[in-house]
């Protein structure tokens, strides 16, 4: 019994020491982030080292990336007060031997199925554009290189590498890429296509881009506003490619996949939704819809 007590005491003290001993480094942050150490609050600074007795305060809309024990990285994006001692689990870094990694890798490569378009849509989608060579603060996903649009709604979105609050969105006609036909300032990282309907006409091609307010971005993306009859003909062609005895949900899922591949993102979203609604028990349809919404910033 004494031995058992001794061992448990030893183990618990080891766990305690591990949790107490963690060092945290502020790798980056944006917004209002402060650190409380020894009851004194100070503004966070990049490169600051803290021990686990410190507390970090993150204001709403702010974010902080921490590195624990010079190894594990995690980001806090929700506002709140976080004592660092609670992040013991985030400090763990799994290190297995090179040999076991090699065996796992070889085995995975030898046994991994290459998947199918239905279950791994991203691997088979032809929507990705070119790699960019630029140093813009705004990055537009290459999947939005070309967006074909007829009906419905889909946002034209981007990511920002700068801590900017406002962004400018520019829409150009295909004949003049210098003077925008529409320009707006937004706080979000997206502009829904439905907001542009008063400025664009079916059957025309437009270019768009976004930049941090006051900056420029030469990376133009294409928006093709298709006529209803043109889209109808494309849809009929896609529908005709079905197999006999195709169910409603199956057909909707296939059409959605093919529309996404043809860059009709708003329409593809409608069909992914149709498939998920028609067969609510189907996990693949539901997860694909969620994944599609996440990819294209559809809320």
């Amino acid at each position: 019994m004494k031995k058992l007590l001794f061992v448990s005491l030893l183990l618990s003290s080891a766990v305690f020491v591990q949790a107490q001993g963690a060092d945290f480094l502020i790798y980056s942050f944006k917004g209002n982030v402060s650190v409380v150490e020894n009851n004194a609050e100070a503004k966070a600074k990049v490169g600051k080292l803290m021990n686990s007795s410190a507390t970090i305060k993150v204001a709403n809309g702010s974010a902080v990336t921490l590195i624990c024990n010079e190894a594990a990285m995690f980001t806090i994006t929700k506002g709140g007060t976080y004592p660092l001692r609670n992040f013991g689990d985030s400090c763990k870094v799994s290190k297995s031997s090179v040999s076991s990694n090699y065996v796992k890798y070889v085995w995975a490569q030898m046994t991994k199925s290459s998947g199918s378009p239905g279950s791994n849509r991203k691997a088979y989608m032809n929507t990705v554009g070119a790699v960019s060579r630029s140093i813009n603060n705004v990055w537009i996903d290459p999947r939005l290189d070309t967006v074909n649009y007829c009906d419905g709604d889909v946002p034209l979105s981007w990511k920002s590498y700068a801590d900017a609050e406002e962004f400018e969105f520019f829409l150009f006609s295909s004949t003049d890429i210098v003077n925008p036909i529409y320009k707006t300032t937004v706080k979000k990282h997206k502009v829904p296509v439905s907001d542009l309907l008063g400025k664009i006409k079916p059957g025309n091609t437009y270019y768009w881009t976004a930049a941090v307010k006051g900056e420029e971005n030469d990376d133009l993306k294409v928006l093709n506003y298709k006529k209803k009859e043109d889209f109808k003909s494309i849809l009929e062609t896609i529908k005709a490619q079905g197999v006999p005895f195709e169910g409603d949900a199956e057909q909707a899922y296939r059409i959605a996949f093919m529309l996404e591949d043809a860059h009709f993102l708003a329409e593809a979203h409608d069909y992914y939704e149709k498939a998920a609604t028609a067969d609510e028990a189907n996990v693949l349809y539901r997860s694909t819809l969620m994944s599609f919404r996440k990819d294209y910033e559809i809320k």
Partner: peptide, 18 residues
């Protein structure tokens, strides 16, 4: 550790890291 220029210029970087 990568420090962004605006963070450096606005004194948002801990000097001990340099």
């Amino acid at each position: 550790l990568v420090v962004q220029p605006e963070d450096l210029m606005m004194d948002m970087v801990d000097s001990s890291s340099f």
